[in-house]
Amino acid sequence: MDDAFTSRLEITYGPAELVDPVGSVGFAGGLGAEPGPPVSLDLHPILRDFAHSTDSASHQAWLTGLTWTAHLRDSMVTVTVTGSVPDGSSVGFGIPDGPAASRLAAAADRLQDFVVEHLRIGLPPVPGTARPAHALLHDGEALWADDRTPWSCLIGSYL
């Protein structure tokens, strides 16, 4: 399943002159943001968790067919996610630039809305329930968590 996500990545970051064609440097270049992985890669663990949390082949196919781009502009990361054919739906949203865990939690929260809207199911579910977990930032880590129990796991490690 991870290969399907990797093959669908469409990565762009910042102004064209700062783009590394293989995406191996931080997305911000010299713009003052935290150096690190490109923000586009932030979406990979989120969508992988969604796909791993459903047994529906049609849901998995839709999730693995998503493509996305992310751009840094004026300290905001603008993300566009496009659904797979024949769906063709898309969503765009902005998240504040900042530490990778903060971007990850914010993107997970926004992507959950897109998934619920199109699949009519909240993913990922809290284990043993039908309730969807929610994304949050806690002690510098991006987590899936449950409001009713102490259960949580790192975003990207839901199995």
Rank of each mutant, 00 (worst) to 15 (best):
P150G: 10
D146S: 08
G92E: 10
L43W: 01
L41N: 13
S84E: 04
A100S: 15
L31E: 13
A4R: 12
A100F: 08
A133I: 04
A108R: 04
A70C: 10
G29Y: 04
L137H: 01
P15K: 14
M76C: 12
G140Y: 02
D87I: 05
R103I: 05
P96C: 00
A106H: 05
S56F: 02
G30F: 11
L119N: 10
D55T: 15
V19R: 13
G156N: 10
L154P: 08
A105S: 07
H138Y: 03
Y158W: 05
H71F: 09
V77G: 00
L63M: 11
A101E: 12
Y158V: 05
R48A: 14
S58F: 02
V91E: 14
A70S: 12
G156C: 10
S84C: 09
G88L: 14
P127S: 06
S24Q: 11
V81F: 00
P96W: 00
L104Q: 08
E34Y: 06
S24G: 06
S58Q: 09
S53E: 07
P35V: 01
A145I: 02
G29I: 02
P99I: 08
G94N: 09
L119E: 10
V22P: 03
V115Q: 11
P15F: 04
P96S: 00
S7V: 02
G23Y: 06
S102L: 02
V85W: 11
P38I: 05
L66Q: 07
I46D: 02
R103F: 03
Y13N: 15
S102T: 04
P38F: 02
C153E: 07
D109M: 05
S56E: 08
P35D: 04
I155C: 05
F93S: 12
A70G: 07
V39L: 07
D147F: 07
A61R: 14
S152I: 03
P150D: 12
A100E: 13
P127N: 12
V85N: 08
T80F: 04
G128S: 09
V85R: 15
G92S: 15
P15D: 12
Q112S: 11
L72I: 15
L137E: 05
H134R: 04
I95W: 07
